[in-house]
Design a protein around this nucleic acid. Sequence first.
DNA 1: TCGGTTAAACCGACTGTTTAGTTAGGAGGT
DNA 2: ACCTCCTAACTAAACAGTCGGTTTAACCGA
Lengths: 216, 216
Amino acid sequence: MVVTEAVAHRSEVRQRILEAAAEVFAERGFGGAGVDEIARRAGVNKAMLYYHVGDKAALFAEVVNSNVEGIRQAVSSALSGLDDPSERLRAIPRAFARTVGKHRYLPQLMLREIAAGGPNLPAEAVARIAEIMGMTKGVLEDGLARGEFRRVDPFVAHLMLVGSLMFMANALRMRQRLSAILALPPETADELESLTEQMVDITLNGIATNENPGED
Amino acid sequence: MVVTEAVAHRSEVRQRILEAAAEVFAERGFGGAGVDEIARRAGVNKAMLYYHVGDKAALFAEVVNSNVEGIRQAVSSALSGLDDPSERLRAIPRAFARTVGKHRYLPQLMLREIAAGGPNLPAEAVARIAEIMGMTKGVLEDGLARGEFRRVDPFVAHLMLVGSLMFMANALRMRQRLSAILALPPETADELESLTEQMVDITLNGIATNENPGED
DNA sequence: TCGGTTAAACCGACTGTTTAGTTAGGAGGT
DNA sequence: ACCTCCTAACTAAACAGTCGGTTTAACCGA
């Protein structure tokens, strides 16, 4: 169908714009990002941004919402089908890490969103963040009920798992410079995934009742 | 002495400018911050920024360097006089939390610095960050040698302690909005310090060999 | 198959505003 | 007379957003 092609093209252009916008917002922040540069990177005329998406604020809101929604979906589908609380808790940062692997700009963008604080964030995004944190909370309560976890504040636990992950993902780019000064690594490929596993091991070990001391 | 007064005045104005700059950079990011607004908040003419400190980039570098140095000093002096590895490890995020108490803009600023990534950060600041991370590394090695800690990547451990703390400090402003949606807190006063303690408990518990399961 | 109609998609060039940074000069003490 | 500290007014560039006009392509009657 020709109509289908047109629709496909339309959403493809839109997608390219949002990708470019996400990159630029991540690199430079909302204030530092230039609409002209977003257009240039997306390979479209500036007026097309306004035609397809809207003004700078709309562009930003769209980027934030769709990315938060992407993470929500990743976490949600990662949890489905798992039963063991420890495995479920592991699955959450893993889903984050996997999503980061696909969208490299994501940790930067998220750190900036969090730094920008509540006020600027669209309510839709906050609701989805709450939903994601709610999943952590659910897993923790389940693990508590089964006698596998201690009682911990879900806010703290969630941010330990996800916050430090986002922090690490960003700090990785600095690791080389740090290693040059400090004698940092025994080994370590700069894989986010292996660092994530270590982080999760420590956290799980920290909140587990003393039965399974961890599987490394 | 009049000369002394003049010098005092000079550095006081300078300090006021840097405080204001730190606030605005934290709130809006480097790109979003306006030199005019910094001047207005510092209560000085815009040209005075250039007279006393320099251009926008110099202003930013100065703010970052002095804040990182402040944290370095806080951590360093918090460690001196402590011997027990667990207590020493606890002291690091506590020193961060205390410094945050004095300079509220700090977590925002730090998140933005990390998000901005390596390239923009002045080498001086990176060196100091490395030094702070080196202290964590030292404590971990000490604890390992004494048989109190397991072997963990100091990069991971440091970012768990400090990264999630910075993340929490920022996310606290969002906690209310999240609680409205999610039924978040059993209790919890929104004190960063109490959340920090919980976070450190979990982390310490996670890296400790199975002797002291934590002192709560 | 064709020419004509229409609407969506696209563009270069513009506007008014905001921005970082400068400059020419003045008050006031020594 | 001189130097430090300070200011209002300026400049040049960058910025977000708009607008008039042009191209593309789906559709339709004949």
